[in-house]
Nucleic acid binder design. Structure first.
Lengths: 200, 200
DNA sequence: TATCACAATTATACACTGTTCAATTAAAAA
DNA sequence: TTTTTAATTGAACAGTGTATAATTGTGATA
């Protein structure tokens, strides 16, 4: 009988999430196990499963957390950076977070919701936050006439960087002897922004 | 005793691969099961596991197959298309294949090799083939001075389209009320190619 | 304070998964 | 026909997630 009421419900959620994220960072999604998380926090499997409505719910909650960590890290990268360098800082920040937290970052994109389950509001919000940051920065260097397109363009640029980052991490670029995926991504972003009237 | 030597080793591999790909298309990677494949082909689990050196080997073989299907489909899309339209046909072909074979396509990128296992030659070849197609088409519309950059640029453009395609399929664009990810990807590719001197 | 009711937590059972390997069995060789 | 060889199996094992009946601690009630 492990530890009944050693923690409030909220403390327990926090404990499971925190330990779960650690495990995810160690093992990656494919070897992640709710049972192992339960073992580590000293509660039973049932408790973990109930509290997050199944392992999928737990993974989603962990991924939300990772998203927040990521957004925070991006914002931090912008400190003391001015002008067009801010765009480069975002691209670099995207890559650096993914490289540093490979398993956590990959889990976000490897996990697929069960067909019946809709994307929970909390995860949607965290995702939107990252987009908002980029949209703000893109709008800042676009000429007035193009500003209405900032949101669309930001989404598209994130997708562009995301593609390069993903390929870099799974080794697709290595296969082509490409040694500077970050440089490639940065160049693409510059070209697109210039095509839309930005001055870099 | 199901069916000893009803098939040669090669026939059996083909049978398992074919049925395995069907199952992958039905269930997606996360619910894919080597046991279920064995059941469907009427052989035992051990046979399937031995023949492909574990479930990871089977998945890799299936993904290689999917890659070939994809390359073939891209080449087919180029038939009777000329000039700059060929680039657009490739972008559209990328999206269409992924949409039509969502589970097969996703499995390619969701599966991660065990840390000890190197990428098998066969999979590497299939991946390279897709790149070769794109490089050829990119080189064709680049001015002479830029042709040496065709391979690098092709890799980068694939990554760009891939990012848009992936985001479209997991719903990231829907979250931003973006209704035309393919249009976005096509626009980016045009802008980049023009920046490199192509005439579209 | 003693009792009760409720809610949290557990233990257990179930149906799966992939891997391994001794035992079996069919086909090929002698 | 007998022996050898190699493919194939079946069973055991250690995991997985989910569901649920049985427990148990806690806070409210008398």
């Amino acid at each position: 009988m492990g530890r009944r009421s050693d923690h409030s419900r909220e403390e327990l959620e926090e404990l499971i999430l925190s330990e779960g994220q650690k495990l995810m960072a160690e093992t990656g999604l494919s070897r992640f196990s709710a049972r192992e998380v339960a073992k580590r926090v000293g509660y039973s499997v049932g408790t973990v499963s109930n509290l997050f409505a199944g392992v999928d719910g737990l993974i989603i909650a962990i991924n939300s957390r990772t998203f927040r960590l990521w957004s925070d890290s991006l914002e931090a990268n912008l400190h003391n950076v001015t002008g067009a360098d801010r765009i480069d800082a975002l691209v670099r920040g995207y890559f650096e977070f993914a490289e540093k937290h490979l398993n956590l970052w990959s889990a976000i994109y490897e996990h697929r919701l069960p067909p019946d389950m809709a994307m929970p509001e909390t995860l949607a919000e965290e995702r939107t936050r990252l987009t908002t940051i980029v949209t703000r920065e893109v709008a800042a260097i676009l000429p007035e006439s193009e500003k209405p397109e900032a949101a669309r363009l930001a989404g598209s640029l994130i997708a562009t960087v995301h593609g390069h980052c993903g390929f870099a991490l799974i080794g697709s670029f290595a296969l082509l002897n490409e040694k500077d995926p970050l440089g490639l991504a940065t160049d693409r972003v510059h070209e697109v922004l210039i095509a839309h009237g930005a001055t870099l």
